[in-house]
Amino acid sequence: MLQFALWRIAGLWWTLFAASLVIFIVIEVLPGDPAQVMLGMSGDAQSLGALREQLGLNAPVAQRYLTWATGMLHGDFGVSYTYSVPVADLLRERLTVSLPLAAIALALATVLGLPLGVLAARFRGRLSEAGLMAGLQVGVALPNFWLALLLIYVFSISLRWLPAGGFAGWEKGLWAGLSSLLLPAVALALPQAAILARIMRSALLDVMHEDYIRTARAKGLSRQATLWRHGVRNAMIPVLTVLGLQFSFLIAGAVIIESVFYLPGLGRLVFQAISQRDLITVKSTVMLLVTATVLVAFFVDLAYAAIDPRLRKAPR
């Protein structure tokens, strides 16, 4: 198990390194002159030169990358061009919104999706399954931001139960904060739950065809006990892989959903930074989001190995 963890940690660093390189190249090398991009049409020669100086663009590319990467390792993400505050401060502030949002959405998706998947597999071939499957099919096809608009229309505009957008802040109490995150989290979670349920169902149906399920039944285990002790547990292996990937979609979805609800999260930050051509903020925020995705994939891999003893070896 330790071997496996060490191996995966090595992979984790490799991915983070490659990702930072990709981000750096796309932002700083591809456009030619990032300073020109940031100033747009309005830039005169003098301010262009000043900005180049500020961004350290006169240094060679390799050195610029190293400065940025080592800076991040020390918690230094640069200074935002538009806000003139350290990006690290911005990120910390925005994380108080994005992190709870992602956590609630992931929890909701799992709590809803997995049991629904088990149910669908249990009721295979019955009418209730057909209904459930139809619902899941629609759920998978729902764009989350459209679902968000519908939720706003129903719960905020028509029923006036929950705020339509904005974030009250955690200072005003837990409920005030939660109430502004509830609709966004539901909008994010529902399509993901549908995807998870479908994967759980098909993984479970696959597993229930295995020989060891027949062995369990031959030992006298009831249908129910076999399903839970041998079926669901073994089906979790393929489900976990997907769960890791889901987080990547969740982050992507959060960027859009935060825009729909005007939530001051990371997604909104990076989106605004684009429209303000604040490349420093874009670069570091995207890096943070990528890191989050990679970390989640890493922990999912560890969980994977904890469940499946066949994986607790270092690969060749």
């Binding site: 020989d211 062995t215 039944r217 030992k219 006298g220 009831s222 469940i307």
Partner: peptide, 29 residues
């Protein structure tokens, strides 16, 4: 019905299968 059979299977009537690799759950000791 299944309740009666669950008590008989394994306790009174047992079975040994052809392919021992797939007859055992790979992720349970």
């Amino acid at each position: 019905d299944d309740r009666i059979m669950n008590r008989l299977r394994g306790r009174h009537i047992s079975m040994i299968f052809q392919e021992p690799m797939s007859a055992l759950n790979p992720i349970k000791s």
